[in-house]
Structure formats: structure tokens, C-alpha cells
Design a binder for these strands. Structure first.
Length: 277
DNA sequence: AATGTAAGCAACCGCCTATCA
DNA sequence: CTGATAGGCGGTTGCTTACAT
């Protein structure tokens, strides 16, 4: 199948958007919506391709875009979610209202990856529990690019365990779950001192999600209080499982399943290592 | 002050998937 | 069922800015 190029028509503009273009796009979408991105630029009188318009709107012009630097809590959520989901930026962005996948991707590559690398470098043994530094990498870190190339954690499938500091137990993650109608009570999140808490994160490869796992294996892996959380707090009709371990396993292969799994660990407050199946 | 280099980020590219005729 | 199309996504690029020398 030959894909029709959308941006090769002569006269279509590329590169940075001007304030005039922004204004045209914004006012058009406010009036007519964006049901058809490809037709939108023509209708709006913009010399841009539909993709470019869509990207500009989603990443910059949307009214619910959150501006400014990422908070420590947001950065921690990104790191945790990346541990679970990998480079699924849109899925991570779904946990951070007002942030875009592009923005998160940029933050990851410019700040967080280095932060993890620095933390990892401070660990003589990657399996040994050690507190991560909270300090941000400064631009003066002239060795950072070299480190990224040689020790990129996203390319290191054998990193069994990465630990990091959480800034607060009341993360946006929890509030986002609440906003999705999943009836999460933040008080359940029984982290210790917010300034001194550790959360063990798990690197899980694709085989983990796809392999057949017995109920006993799942049980032994889950936080000890997880079934209490499941049975007492999650309305079945609002969640992809029915309090059944078998159904939990079935849900692993979709985002809700991973959401569930991640949420379980976060809210259990436990430091738990994932056994090998 | 001038120049080189690295960091940050907006935008583009191309692939994948869902949808529809 | 098949092919065309549009939207979505992750990877990458390249420009701008900040900082170091």
C-alpha cells in the first residue's frame, strides 16, 4: 500500500508556527472543532498540513495544556510509568493531565534519563537498595551525553531494580485515577514520610505480560495487601477485573491491566521485588 | 566579546492501526 | 475481504538558547 503523503503539496508551510497561524487555528477549532484534521487547514485558510495543525493544537494550543516546569511529583510519575510502560509516551501522558506526550518525551530525554543514569552510577550494585539523588542535572554536566550513550537505562533490559525517591504520597497519579472514576482513596497510599520514602520499581519486559502465569505465582508477586485493595476499594463494574486473579492475568495485555498492576504497587506502599516467572 | 558546545524543545517524519467504502 | 484514508504514536531532527572557554 502506498501511503499518500500529506505534506508534500506545494505551498504548504513547514517549520515554526507564527502567532497569526496560532490565532487562526485556535479560533477555527473553537468555532468548528477538529473533526477532520486533513480538511481543517484548507477550511481555516492555513497553509499547513493537517498533521501539523493537529500537532500544534495538541502540543501547544489546547486550552487545557499545563505550562511551566514539571514538578518533582510529575517527574517521579514519569519515571515510574516509564519503568512499567517503556517509551509509551501517550500512555504516560494520560497519567499527567495537561501534559503532552511530546513534552514528556522531551523531559525524559533531557532531564529524567540523566537523573536515572546519575542515580544508577551511584549504585555499585544495581540490585542493592540505595537512595537516589533528587538533584537535577545541570547544563554544566559536560559528561552527560557520553553517559547517555553508554549507559542508557532504557536500553538496558537487565536492570532488575531501580529505586528512587518520591517527593510526595499525594501524587497526581492518584488524583488522576480518582478523576477517571476509579474511586481511589489517597489515604490508602500508605507511604512513609513523603520526604523519605522509597518505592521499588520493577522493570518488566514484554514476556512478562504475555507469558502464562499461574494464580499462585501472581499471588506471590502481588503486594500482600493487594487483595484487600482489590476487593474492598475497586468497584468491579469500573475495573477490568472481577477480583479474580485469573482475570488480572488476562488484563495484563492491555493498558488497563498495566494501570491496575502499577496502581496496586503504588498504593500498597510496599517495596516488593518481582520474581521471575 | 567572540566563539564553540551542549541542552532544551518544537516540529517533522514515517510507520502502524482503526475505520470505512 | 481489500484497499484507501485519517489519526495517532514514537523516533528523530534541527533551530534557539544558555553556558563554558
Amino acid at each position: 500500500m502506498v501511503r499518500a503523503p500529506c505534506c508534500e503539496k506545494k505551498g504548504l508551510k513547514k517549520g515554526p508556527w507564527t502567532s497569526e497561524e496560532d490565532e487562526i487555528l485556535t479560533s477555527y477549532i473553537q468555532k468548528h472543532g477538529h473533526s477532520n484534521w486533513r480538511a481543517l487547514p484548507k477550511d481555516a485558510g492555513l497553509l499547513r498540513c493537517g498533521k501539523s495543525c493537529r500537532l500544534r493544537w495538541i502540543n501547544y494550543l489546547r486550552p487545557d495544556i499545563k505550562r511551566g516546569n514539571f514538578t518533582n511529583e510529575e517527574e517521579d510519575i514519569i519515571i515510574k510509568m516509564h519503568e512499567l510502560l517503556g517509551n509509551r509516551w501517550s500512555a504516560i501522558a494520560a497519567k499527567l493531565p495537561g501534559r503532552t506526550d511530546n513534552e514528556i518525551k522531551n523531559v525524559w530525554h533531557t532531564h529524567l534519563k540523566k537523573r536515572l543514569i546519575k542515580n544508577t552510577n551511584n549504585q555499585p550494585n544495581s540490585n542493592t537498595k540505595k537512595r537516589a539523588s533528587k538533584s537535577k542535572i545541570k547544563r554544566t554536566d559536560s559528561n552527560s551525553s557520553t553517559l547517555i550513550q553508554s549507559q542508557d537505562p532504557s536500553n538496558s533490559p537487565n536492570n532488575n531494580l531501580i529505586e528512587m525517591e518520591t517527593a510526595s504520597s499525594n501524587s497526581n497519579f492518584s488524583s488522576d485515577f480518582s478523576s477517571q472514576g476509579k474511586n481511589i482513596d489517597n489515604s490508602v497510599n500508605n507511604f512513609e514520610d513523603p520526604e523519605d520514602s522509597l518505592v521499588t520499581m520493577l522493570e518488566i519486559d514484554e514476556s512478562f505480560w504475555s507469558e502464562t502465569i499461574t494464580d499462585d505465582e501472581i499471588s506471590s508477586t502481588m503486594p500482600s495487601n493487594s487483595m484487600t485493595i482489590i476487593s474492598n476499594e475497586l468497584p468491579n463494574e469500573q475495573y477490568p477485573i472481577n477480583n479474580s486473579l485469573e482475570n488480572i492475568q488476562k488484563s495484563f495485555d492491555d493498558d488497563d491491566g498495566m494501570d491496575f498492576w502499577y496502581d496496586l504497587f503504588i498504593r500498597s506502599g510496599e517495596t516488593t521485588e518481582l520474581p521471575e516467572f
